[in-house]
């Protein structure tokens, strides 16, 4: 009866999800790993001409766009994540300190989360247009000459700045929302106590809010880094599938999809898999690093 096990029944309930998970989640993990070690893998028939330990990895490391992809990926992560975490933390704290219009502001800040990155990316491209974009107009008020941010011929550094603005903008919504819900769950008594001890606002922020929120900050930071490592759609939205002028904004994931986009080319699926493995290990490294840091730093 109640304490009985229902093996058959339970697995029956799990069956629909289980089948899908086996086919589309568990099997792919193994298979993608294996493709990395196959020579000339044919994606339609599964044929391959032999095994190689490092051949495909070497191919991806030697790919002319690999190091630019690593550079771009790391740069995007290390600029956009800290920036958006800090900005959204402040916005959340300010938002939490007001009553009137809180809901309205909250709604506005949340908008980027629900909207289509391709559509908004296109709007950003218009704003960053060299000739009639809003951004260059603003700069011109400070006497700066028009800059080509997005269009073909744009220098890498300018494209990258424009991209970082978009990615940071795009990342705020989720973080603000999560931080705000975290702040709202902090017991008001801490603040009352601190107020009575006549702590200043900035002291309260540093000594109470941040420590109490630190598990959440750590969690958001790590997931944002993982997310930033996988940046792709935003770049396509703003710069197109070739990922910027002459592919100068290529990322690791961009490399994966570029290779996967021409699956009939010999070795390209293996190349995609190898790039994905590189990404996997970057993510893993980061997760381990984060666990190590949060053990030491996070106050509970």
């Amino acid at each position: 009866m109640l304490e009985d096990r229902h093996d058959f029944k339970a697995w029956l309930y799990l069956l629909p999800a289980l089948i899908l998970l086996i086919v589309f989640t568990f099997y792919p993990i193994i298979n993608t790993f294996m493709i990395v070690f196959m020579v000339d893998y044919d994606f339609l028939y599964g044929d391959y001409t032999g095994w190689t330990l490092t051949g495909n990895i070497q191919a991806v490391l030697g790919h002319r766009q690999f190091w630019p992809a690593i550079r771009n990926t790391v740069l995007i992560a290390f600029v956009s994540v800290p920036l958006s975490v800090i900005i959204s933390l402040f916005i959340a704290v300010w938002l939490n300190s007001i009553k009137k219009l809180q809901g309205a502001f909250q709604t506005i800040f949340f908008l980027p989360y629900v909207t289509n990155a391709i559509a908004v990316g296109l709007a950003f491209a218009v704003i960053f247009n060299r000739d009639y974009g809003l951004f260059n107009y603003m700069l011109s008020l400070f006497g700066i000459d028009p800059i080509n941010w997005v269009a073909p011929g744009s220098p890498w550094r300018f494209s990258m700045i424009a991209l970082l603005v978009f990615i940071t903008w795009n990342g705020l919504a989720f973080k603000i929302m999560v931080f705000l819900s975290g702040l709202q769950s902090i017991d008001k008594q801490y603040y009352d106590a601190a107020r009575i001890d006549s702590a200043s606002r900035s002291r309260i922020f540093r000594k109470i809010t941040v420590p109490l929120l630190s598990p959440m900050i750590a969690f958001i930071t790590i997931t944002s880094f993982i997310g930033a490592f996988k940046e792709y759609t935003a770049i396509v939205g703003m710069f197109g599938e070739q990922m910027g002028y002459r592919g100068q904004l290529i990322t690791i994931v961009g490399l994966v999809y570029e290779a996967l986009g021409e699956p009939y080319v010999a070795g390209s699926v293996s190349l995609a898999a190898s790039a994905a493995i590189v990404l996997f290990f970057m993510t893993l490294l980061l997760t381990i690093f984060n666990m190590w840091v949060s053990k030491k730093r996070v106050h509970y």
Binding site: F24, P28, K230, A273
Partner: peptide, 15 residues
Amino acid sequence: MMIPGEMFVITNFIT
């Protein structure tokens, strides 16, 4: 859940 989605995408595309 820790594994990046691209790992799945590649094989799923093949599948």
